[in-house]
């Protein structure tokens, strides 16, 4: 994998990758992908995936009292104003 490809993956995953890590990961990735490629040879024409689980949903409504967790959750936010989490302008 090229250094550019690592940087591009980094941007897709929103991680700034240092120069040192870029070099290291480029080498690692080739080895790892090479290892992963062995599944190519597995014949899966007989496989119809059956899932044990199905989507679970609940009825609309208030599962708990309004505001019950607000203070605890806000306490963990890096930047808060007037009971809201403050974020940078997006547009």
């Amino acid at each position: 994998m090229t250094h550019e490809e690592i940087k591009k993956l980094g941007f897709l995953a929103r991680i700034e990758v240092s120069e040192e890590d870029t070099v290291r990961f480029a080498g690692d990735m080739d080895n790892i992908l090479n290892f992963l490629k062995q599944i190519e040879s597995v014949d899966v024409s007989d496989v119809t995936p059956v899932h044990r689980f199905k989507n679970v949903s609940r009825e609309d409504g208030n599962p708990y009292e309004k505001g019950q967790f607000s203070q605890d959750l806000l306490a963990e936010a890096p930047d808060v104003q007037d009971g809201f989490i403050k974020v940078k302008k997006i547009l």
Binding site: I6, L9, G10, L12, A13, R14, I15, E16, V17, S18, D21, R24, F25, D28, M29, I32, L33
Partner: peptide
């Protein structure tokens, strides 16, 4: 994410993204 995550975590996120 650059500052907060360690090397192995980054490696796996990039691999997963790929």
């Amino acid at each position: 994410r650059e500052t907060g995550f360690g090397r192995e975590v980054k490696r796996r996120i990039l691999l997963g993204t790929y």
